[in-house]
Design a protein around this nucleic acid. Sequence first.
DNA 1: GATAATTTTGTTAGCGTTAACGATGTCAAT
DNA 2: ATTGACATCGTTAACGCTAACAAAATTATC
Lengths: 340, 340
Amino acid sequence: MPVTLADIAEALGVSMMTVSRAINNRPTISTETRARVLEAARAMGYQPNHQARGLATKRTFLIGLVVPDLTHSYFAELAKAIESIARPAGYEVLICNTDEDAEKEIAEVTALRHRTDGLIIASSLTQEKADLYRKLISKGAKLVFLDRHFARVGSPAVVTDNVLVGLLATEHLINLGYRRIGHLQGIGIRVATDRLEGYRQALLKHKIRFDEKLVRPCGLFEQSGYEAMRSWIAEGKLPRAIFAVNDPTAIGALSALYEAGIQVPNEVAIVGAGAIHYGVLLRVPLTTVDWDLIEMGHQAARLMLETIERNKPKNGRQRIVIVNPALVVRKSCGAGVNNK
Amino acid sequence: MPVTLADIAEALGVSMMTVSRAINNRPTISTETRARVLEAARAMGYQPNHQARGLATKRTFLIGLVVPDLTHSYFAELAKAIESIARPAGYEVLICNTDEDAEKEIAEVTALRHRTDGLIIASSLTQEKADLYRKLISKGAKLVFLDRHFARVGSPAVVTDNVLVGLLATEHLINLGYRRIGHLQGIGIRVATDRLEGYRQALLKHKIRFDEKLVRPCGLFEQSGYEAMRSWIAEGKLPRAIFAVNDPTAIGALSALYEAGIQVPNEVAIVGAGAIHYGVLLRVPLTTVDWDLIEMGHQAARLMLETIERNKPKNGRQRIVIVNPALVVRKSCGAGVNNK
DNA sequence: GATAATTTTGTTAGCGTTAACGATGTCAAT
DNA sequence: ATTGACATCGTTAACGCTAACAAAATTATC
């Protein structure tokens, strides 16, 4: 059986509280006894029982992380960055996958809520369904939104400027001389509508007429990009260039184009978003929009720790951290190639 | 404040135990009262307090997963597969990254041990250091090894046949006509030595002399493969074909070769192992050895649940599940190309 | 040197749950 | 009617820890 505070207390002939104080580094204990206790604890191999501690303090030292797809390097890198802050602070990270499924997300958030001190969520919910989160927050839940946030839910969040992402990507294509530019549009989430908005703004800015036939709905996965592109190819009237809502869909589109024998970037140019890990090594290295995921994860973790550790639900304005996106030019956009 | 058993008990005018029994679906309660309690619990929005439950039962309903690199799609897919079994069974999965660092692994295993019901470990420790795990098991720790296991640690494990992996990869290269075949050798872990052994066996079987100059030490990351390949290129005397210990190192090698203007597979052919997600979409699609990760994760999760739920430390022989590897032929090996 | 101020330690109770046992009620068999 | 078997429900204590208060020991103050 593991060593308990009581064991140490008995061995040293002091009270449990004294031991507890030493272990938790409380100021109200003499440095001498603290040293004695810590030494004994070390020698006896004491490991605190988090369940008992949690029951007494209403803390779990667990942070929940809810992501749509862990196999997407984007979220795996975020997870890693979050962990690198959380663990040294004494928290473990509980990762949950939702597969971009709203039902699953709701179920997992509900389950995780009482098992963790707070949740970092990259939500797949639509803006309308986000009321759930408003309710949770008013019940005292500690949430930090990651990558995706909700306008009407007042919670800290770390996101990128997705309108700018769409603008950078689309404007880059325009600057390369393309005029007939399509968009593979993600569905549901705010990120997707913002990127679409950026796409529109770029067109507007350069006086290119917005043509809704050039905007094709699509999911957020590689498979969805593949399927959307396949059906587009089948229908014909392909645009000269495409801004895909994210890198997985861009890669899916790339596969479909390759399969159909359509040259990238010579026949169709592609730009993605979100700098997937292997984008640079692809058959056609993928031009994309990148932002600092390590920074993003760190910030989210820090916001979470702050939210947990100041115990008031909110002091003053909620913090929204915005990470700046930047274009990464590679081959798939046709930069350096003779475009018309 | 959340609803407790006491609240429900009071509301219904029964004892807490009755409520507890209903919630936990114990047989010693009348179906009628159980229904009443469950209905009330549902209506009041009762969520069990896992900390308290855990304190009383010595269970946490948490499974720890320790992996060397979550951003490697290999481990992310395993994690996802494990989660898909664990969550429906009422367990959450606590994922920890070790970056292939033995120190970190030991620290995290030690920390996680008492916070979880059991640990699924893809260990980075060498066989010698594995004594730690023998000790933990003798102290009652519940471990399942994943992807990598230890000969002398009697614990359930789910692995592939890594000797066969090496053999399949190398023999494929031999069958393609190559004779001067090199190996980027992973270090430390059993997986690497097994794959090296497979490489040797393949050479032996085809009466090709083993030349230790053709075996270059290397880590397990993309970066290590890149560096190892770069120095090999700098030294010259490249082999005609290379079996890399895994896909990340193979991809690193690919990058180094590309950078040096060396054609793959025309000048140097490459085979990896472990079927990384984007291997098929690379500049030169990567020939590799694949095995079923979903199956692997499922099996590991099931072994873990079994180990947790039968409370005896071991009944009969320890189960070792072996997932069969199979070659995936793509372009990097030069199949279909005119080899000499 | 007595008292107050301060520092250090101990005691009690409780966090929400379940295990173990005890109590009650019901029913059938004697 | 008495006994016992069985089903159902309740009481008590404990899990390991900490908050809040109480007590003791030490130091400072005049």
